[in-house]
Design a protein around this nucleic acid. Structure first.
Length: 669
DNA sequence: GAGCACTGC
């Protein structure tokens, strides 16, 4: 048995998972408003908030805080005549919340109530309640650090600690202070969160009071295993079938696993086992769920359970916050997650399976009690659970900070090393980011202070990693702006190349015609040109194993980047066949990611002489160019360079003479 | 000769 069901008494608790997910929780509209838990507290809540500059609002799932509070504030005239901003970590949430609130106010979406997300602005001068993504408000702040148009900033889902929310904390705190000092209209800041991190939020915002809101979450029973499980997959399998044979039909199971491959394998195993069950067992429908799964297949997880059957959903952490499935009675938590780590010394990103935090485990557990009471099986011992980290490390402590530092400098933060972060990244990580920006020519010292150069200011206008912004800004010098725009856009979305392992030979045959001996970037450029030639025809995409969805997204990104170029009055030319210009431009912007062939046939990075290899997915896999630049490193079984472009060592010397003089092997000889 | 969790501007 994977877990102990008769042993020590189950812990019964009232789960308070974060994250109201409006897109599928969707209670009926305005008729429901008055019966939400928050409505009983309206009067006292408004009285308190009216007096406060800053408040931390803790609300359980189902409290109605996200939809109701902005309306209450507006109806009470708090913040009038400014705009009330409500930020969300995800686009869908911003859009669906705005739609719902507009419906409750019985107004047209985009007028009084609106939303603003990337590629989609549904708001106007009349808009008073504005839902936006946290990243969008941050971008606005670059143009207007004091956020003049807003009178209230509500930062929702703050416990998720996205990199954007974390930077916004500092931005709104500073804006509030400065507006006060200058006698401007005050900025009210309301931080909304689930139960974790309460003290930290309050402390950060100068001891701001914490207001608790009742929620409406059903009780969930939690079971731990008696003994530590050596194989969480085996334990999960046993648990699934144990539940399946004991629980009534129509009670669905959600299982948290770590990744696509694991989920696909487990899906197959479960389906096989399910075929050999004794008679009288409910029919089992096993459904995988992960982000890269085609949308149509994701939707299957939402279909109601067939009469007399049972749905078993095998999911990544996408089901923790982004996707909510109704009717889950059982959650099986393996306690594992695949997550990214970053080490500033090597610039290496590592994607590794690791233990979840306590907060994450509670989040998973909460997915069981959304419509009625639920049960959660934790495939680890209670003792081990106690040893889990309290919180997941905030994203800002796990990332390359080059973009963040560039944004902070664009916000005219006087000293990025002492910026008021709620959770400070390591000084090494900040310094590494400054060094990168320095090499790109984005920053300079002025009167002992780090400031942006004119180039740096332009770079900050692009929603991109600084090295890509630099590529775009340099491209006119090489007469290839159109091509670089395409390449950078392709690199900033998920891969447009679809690689189903089962059809490997067909994929290779179809891809042949796009391959350029000048590397992966130019191969991608060929794909885009061919795609444009057939006007993005769907059948063509299918035949050529091109991901049409990502291609469309890429086109949107490209249009946005092109707009920014036009606003910066950049001359946009195409080099047509002269692809050397494109490679030179890439050499001048990716020079920090350069590697040289060594006499023994291996590759070493020019920066730190680290041993690296060409990723087998690269078109240059079988080739041995003397000198390459790459988009990034990926650490798996070895350290791989991804997206390669062969370059001349002289180009690198041209790009950053000081940096390369001592480093480049070919320059020494 | 490999394989990538999830967001967002």
């Amino acid at each position: 048995m994977a877990q102990d069901r008769e042993g020590p008494p189950a812990k019964r608790f009232k789960a308070a998972p974060p994250g109201t997910q409006p897109q599928s929780a969707a209670p009926p509209a305005h008729v429901q408003r008055r019966s939400l838990p928050i409505s009983g507290a309206r009067g006292p809540l408004l009285a308190r908030l009216r007096r406060l500059d800053t408040a931390i609002l803790i609300g359980e799932t189902g409290s109605g805080k996200t939809t109701q509070l902005p309306q209450y504030l507006y109806e009470a005239g708090i913040g009038h005549p400014g705009v009330i901003a409500v930020t969300q970590p995800r686009r869908v949430a911003a859009v669906t919340l705005a739609a719902r609130v507009a419906e409750e106010k019985r107004t047209e979406l985009g007028k009084l109530v609106g939303y603003t997300v990337r590629f989609d602005d549904c708001s106007c001068a009349e808009t008073r309640l504005r839902f936006l993504t946290d990243g969008m408000l941050l971008r606005e702040a670059i143009g207007d650090p004091l956020l003049h148009k807003y009178s209230v900033a509500i930062l929702d889902e703050a416990h998720e600690r996205t990199i954007h929310t974390d930077v916004l904390f500092g931005v709104v705190k500073a804006a509030q202070k400065k507006r006060k000092e200058r006698g401007l209209r005050p900025l009210k800041v309301i931080v909304m969160s689930a139960t974790m991190d309460v003290d930290m939020f309050s402390q950060y915002f100068n001891g701001a009071p914490v207001i608790y809101l009742e929620g409406r979450q059903h009780p969930i029973d939690i079971f731990y295993t008696k003994e530590r499980q050596s194989d969480y997959l085996q334990a999960a399998l046993v648990s699934i079938f144990q539940i399946h044979q004991e629980a009534p039909a129509c009670q669905d199971i959600l299982v948290f696993l770590t990744g696509q491959e694991e989920i696909e394998a487990m899906t197959k195993t479960c389906r096989d086992v399910a075929q050999h069950l004794p008679e009288g067992c409910p029919r089992m429908t096993v459904l995988p769920l992960y982000a890269s799964l085609p949308h149509s297949q994701q939707l299957r997880a939402f279909k109601p359970t067939p009469e007399g059957g049972r749905k078993v959903i095998l999911s990544t952490n996408i089901a923790e916050t982004s996707i909510t499935i109704a009717g889950i009675k059982f959650v099986v938590d393996t306690g594992m997650v695949k997550a990214k780590k970053y080490s500033p010394e090597t610039g290496l990103e590592v994607l590794a399976v690791q233990q979840v935090s306590k907060a994450q485990a509670w989040q998973r557990t909460g997915r069981a009690g959304r419509q009625e009471s639920g049960i959660c099986y934790r495939l680890y011992t209670e003792e081990d659970f106690e040893k889990f980290e309290e919180m997941t490390t905030p994203e800002i402590q796990r990332c390359n900070l080059a973009s963040v530092v560039l944004q902070l400098l664009a916000l005219k933060i006087p000293n990025v090393l002492t910026f008021d972060f709620m959770s400070k990244p390591s000084p090494d990580a900040i310094q590494a980011a400054i060094d990168q920006l320095d090499l790109l020519g984005a920053v300079t010292q002025k009167e002992g202070q780090l400031v942006l150069t004119p180039l740096g200011k332009k770079m900050a206008a692009f929603p991109l990693d600084p090295k890509f912004s630099k590529a775009i800004l340099l491209s006119p010098q090489f007469h290839c702006a159109e091509e670089i725009l395409t390449i950078v856009s392709l690199l900033s979305v998920d891969s447009v190349l679809h690689n189903p392992p089962a059809q490997r030979d067909e994929v290779q045959a179809a891809r042949k015609k796009f391959i350029s001996s000048e590397g992966d970037h130019l191969t991608l450029l060929n794909v885009y040109r061919a795609y444009k030639n057939v006007n993005g025809h769907k059948g063509w995409c299918r035949e050529n194993f091109i991901n049409g969805r990502n291609m469309k997204l890429m086109a949107e990104v490209r249009a946005q980047l092109r707009d920014i170029c036009v606003k910066l009055s950049m001359p946009l030319e195409s080099c047509r066949g002269d692809t050397a210009g494109v490679r030179r431009c890439l050499a001048h912007s990716l020079f920090m990611n350069a590697a040289e062939l060594r006499p023994d046939g291996s590759y070493g990075t020019v920066g730190s002489q680290q041993l690296v290899a060409i990723h087998p997915s690269s078109v240059l896999f079988q080739c041995k160019p003397a000198c390459v630049v790459y988009t990034g490193l990926l650490r798996t079984s070895r350290c791989y360079m991804r997206d390669l472009c062969p370059v001349d060592a002289e180009w690198l010397l041209e790009a950053a003479p000081e940096y390369f003089r001592r480093r480049l092997r070919s320059a020494k000889s």
